[in-house]
Write a protein that binds this DNA or RNA. Structure first.
Length: 801
RNA sequence: GCCGCUGUGGUGGAAUAGGCAGACACAAGGGACUUAAAAUCCCUCGGAUUAACCUCCGUACCGGUUCAAGUCCGGUCAGCGGCACCA
């Protein structure tokens, strides 16, 4: 009988849904396992094979954990706010609510057709007002605690999307969404003070089990550096110029200073600076450039020397000039640097161009050619002379600076505050009222959710204003504090908002009193295992860790970290080895695969195609191989014989296979787990039979990968109950070993022969057997044995001359 | 530029903690079954040499450590990812 995957898969999907097989409740009698996958953006295009791979990993782990007795929470939801729905609305006039609901229905249907063991009673939609009520609640808590604030700054602005973008959304000077060039614009922006949590976010990494490269990326993103702040006296002004440096020990080599064009010291001393015209002109030029032009282009250094304002090197007492230049940024450190041209390439280029002295203070390079950035002996540096250890010389200088009150130890982070508003409709309204008398006032908690009003026109305003600004009913309100007429904030939150806490809501998705009950959070949190794409390990993960740490600090959650473990799957590339994209026409539709081969084949293939963590190209013919595998599993029914324990010839094979599949699943080595099952299947097929005991455990091993076919066979063959309620098979370590094993025999490290020996044989015994071997004996004839090595159960190596 | 990762047959990939390189699949070639095709089953499948056995070479490249290196060390090249005038 042929395997009719279409009917069988439908049958079991319906069974799971009707019986709520994977819906879970708190059960303190069992250990819990919370497996989390990144919830999708429900795009109109529907699901992608990448989704399948991303979800199949934890799906397989979760199904196995369930058989091992865990209470498994494996939820799904939709991250549904965002630009595509809004752009679609602008184009078609269809309200984002309508298209989003359609897309969610479509996505849900597709996910069900793959047979994922999601708890469908806990589905989340970030655009649901019962959900975003709590997103707004968290925002208000941050506002209350001074972590949400408004500031006027130059922002990255996309003239095409008409939105302000965070640095993260405008990498490379291009808009993340439409790829237009970004320009700089002065605007009032909402920020979340994530920088307050730099150190905690960094320290927290030592408590969690993330893949090493994920930790590293987060560390780089936070970008901690240690150094010193040093205050330089000014000639021509009373105040001091404060700089940040990582190498205070090079202070003797400082021959000039550079400040950012926007540095406030310029305006404070505009009367003293004689060439203010030139300075302002340079500043205006810089303002025109985008962040990209300022930072990305390797170009010649430019700048203007301040005329009438200079500084004093605090350690040499020499007067040194101050320049403004755009290679110093206002956003890092203090916006001012001490320049050490001999040992910093940028300072070197600048000094060379402007004819400034270059003083060597670290020996080892040739400063007539380029800056020397390596280590070496300190020279021309007073008390530091002769020191060769960087750490020691920095410590000595720091001590001196602190004693003299010139400077102190300091720490800097590259991470910047999070620009937290978009001038868009389809997002969570920021629950703030602007009152002429009271300033910014929080919408009272009991008025949440602050609902998105219905609008007709989704086009942003001409000046990048939110479409909400055109809704008078929405904008005009009364101040919650003084009761006088006031205006609502019309910006909405960025897409990262809803996904920053969704894993908490899954614990208790219908709670109307809190984001989740204490009881639910205590039982389910933290997420035991979070899997997703590498592209989300910095922004999304750092943002959500930040929110979580804040919620922990205000007592709203019970763990300091949200995710105990994080892994990432590799991309599925197109059959041509290129990244899948519509324009390249190399996109594989998972539903087509289900149509032709069935959902089990699709699932098995995405896990078998290669190392789960690495990118691998799609191969249609390899999919066929997985289909063949499942057909051969189905055909085992034709060669089934009775037996309630493993037969001798399969005992150790079964135990080894169970051991391998068990540990491989735990380590996400799905490809080798499947290979082990293929191997033993080949053994059964060529042997000509399988008995009931063997088949039962084989099916249980295969179940997490291919649940439909295994449910069906398990039921049809009458193994009792359902496979999703079965117990995960155990193995006996002692039975994984064979009595007789084959070992390799090498002479001088080269393989010459293989011999069978008993597994527990000792070296002397083994060597005796080996030397009795005809071939080895002849190889050794006339040679002198220098050394004999026996690696137990593996090989013998005889060194002979 | 800095940091990190990777490099294995025609292809995807295996190879505890230095111990038989190429598991498992795909593709290809040959055969069986079939009127034929598909499906299925069997055989071959890193390279050189050979009728065959044997033997030699082989994990990007060069060198080293070791009885033994895909694995460890030093250097080179290539590809990928992250950060990037971060002081």
């Amino acid at each position: 009988m042929k395997y009719n995957y279409g009917a069988i898969e439908q049958k079991w999907q319906k069974y799971w849904e009707d019986n709520k097989t994977f819906d879970v409740t708190i059960d303190t009698s069992k250990p819990k396992f919370y497996g989390l996958v990144e919830f999708p953006y429900p795009s109109g295009a529907g699901m992608h094979v990448g989704h399948i791979k991303a979800y199949s990993g934890l799906e397989t782990i979760g199904r196995k954990k369930r058989l091992e007795g865990y209470n498994v929470l494996f939820p799904i939801g939709f991250d549904a706010f965002g630009l595509p729905a809004e752009n679609y609305a602008i184009k078609t006039g269809i309200h984002p609510r309508v298209s989003t609901d359609n897309n969610i229905a479509h996505f849900s249907d597709q996910l069900k057709r793959v047979g994922f063991a999601f708890d469908w009673s806990r589905v989340i939609d970030t655009t649901d007002e019962d959900y975003y009520k709590w997103t707004q609640w968290i925002f208000l808590k941050m506002f209350e605690n001074g972590l949400a604030f408004r500031d006027k700054t130059l922002v990255n602005y996309c003239p095409s999307c008409k939105v302000v973008l965070s640095n993260e959304d405008s990498q490379g000077g291009k808009c993340d969404i439409c790829h237009s060039d970004i320009v700089q614009k002065s605007k009032d922006v909402w920020y979340l003070r994530i920088t307050e949590y730099c150190e905690q976010l960094l320290q927290g990494l030592s408590e969690v089990d993330y893949l090493p490269n994920i930790k590293l990326q987060q560390e780089n993103w936070i970008g901690k550096s240690t150094g010193a702040f040093v205050n330089f006296e000014l000639v021509g002004a009373d105040e001091k110029l404060r700089i940040y440096t990582t190498r205070p020990d090079t202070l003797y080599g400082v021959t000039f200073m550079v400040i950012a064009p926007e540095h406030p010291v310029i305006d404070a001393n505009s009367a003293t600076i004689k060439n203010m015209d030139a300075v302002l002109e340079y500043r205006a030029e810089c303002a025109k450039k985008t962040e990209f032009e300022r930072t990305q282009l390797v170009k010649e250094k430019t700048g203007v020397k301040l005329d009438g304002l200079s500084a004093v090197n605090p350690i040499t007492g020499k007067e040194i000039p101050i320049y403004i230049s755009d290679y110093v940024m206002m956003g890092y450190g203090t916006g001012a640097i001490m320049a050490v041209p001999a040992h910093d390439q940028r300072d070197y280029e600048f000094a060379t161009k402007f004819g400034i002295d270059i003083i060597e203070v670290i020996k080892g390079g040739d400063i007539s050619k380029e800056a020397y950035t390596g280590d070496g002996e300190m020279v021309n540096s007073g008390v530091l002379n002769g020191m060769t250890n960087k750490k020691d010389s920095i410590a000595k200088m720091l001590k001196y600076l602190e004693e003299k009150g010139i400077g102190e130890k300091g720490v800097q982070y590259k991470m910047k505050d999070w620009a937290f508003n978009r001038q868009r409709y389809w997002g969570e309204p920021i629950p703030i009222v602007h009152c002429e008398h009271c300033g910014m006032v929080a919408v009272p908690y009991e008025e949440l959710p602050l609902r998105l009003p219905k609008v007709q026109n989704f086009e942003p305003g001409s000046d990048g204003e939110s479409p909400l600004a055109k809704i008078d009913d929405f904008v005009n309100c009364t101040c919650p504090k003084c009761g006088k007429p006031a205006k609502r904030e019309t910006d909405t939150m960025p897409q990262w908002a809803g996904s920053s806490w969704y894993y908490l809501r899954y614990c208790d998705p219908k709670n109307s009193e809190a984001l989740a009950s204490k009881e639910a959070l205590e039982y389910w949190m933290p997420v035991d295992w979070y899997n997703g794409g590498m592209e989300h390990v910095t922004r999304h993960m750092i943002y959500s860790r930040f929110w979580h740490k804040f919620l922990y600090d205000i007592g709203a959650v019970n763990t300091s970290e949200p995710y105990a473990k994080r892994t990432a799957q590799g991309l599925i590339l197109g059959p041509d080895g290129e990244k899948m994209s519509k324009s390249k026409g190399n996109v594989v539709d998972p539903l087509d695969v289900i149509e032709v081969y069935g959902a089990d084949v699709l699932r098995v293939y995405t896990l078998f195609m290669g190392d789960y963590e690495k990118a691998a190209p799609w191969s249609d013919s390899s999919v066929k191989g997985c289909k063949r595998f499942l057909d051969r599993v189905w055909a085992l029914q034709d060669v089934l014989v009775d037996g309630d324990s493993y037969r001798p010839e399969f005992t150790s094979k079964m135990h080894k296979m169970i051991k391998k599949v068990t540990s491989d699943i735990d380590n996400m080595k799905f490809n080798t787990a499947i290979a082990a099952m293929m191997t033993i299947l080949n053994d059964f097929t060529s042997f000509g039979s399988i008995n009931r005991a063997e088949l039962k455990d084989f099916l249980i091993m295969l179940y997490p990968f291919a649940p439909h076919i295994t449910e069906e066979m398990y039921e049809a063959l009458g193994f009792g109950g359902y496979i999703h309620d079965a117990k995960w098979s155990s193995y006996d370590e002692a039975l994984c070993k064979d009595d007789e094993i084959e070992i390799a025999v090498q002479i001088n490290g080269k393989l010459k022969e293989r011999v069978m020996i008993s597994a527990d044989a000792e070296q002397a015994e083994v060597l005796e057997i080996v030397k009795a071997n005809e071939k080895i004996a002849s190889e050794l004839a006339g040679k002198q044995i220098v050394k004999e090595i026996y690696v137990k159960g593996k090989l013998v190596n005889i060194v002979a001359r």
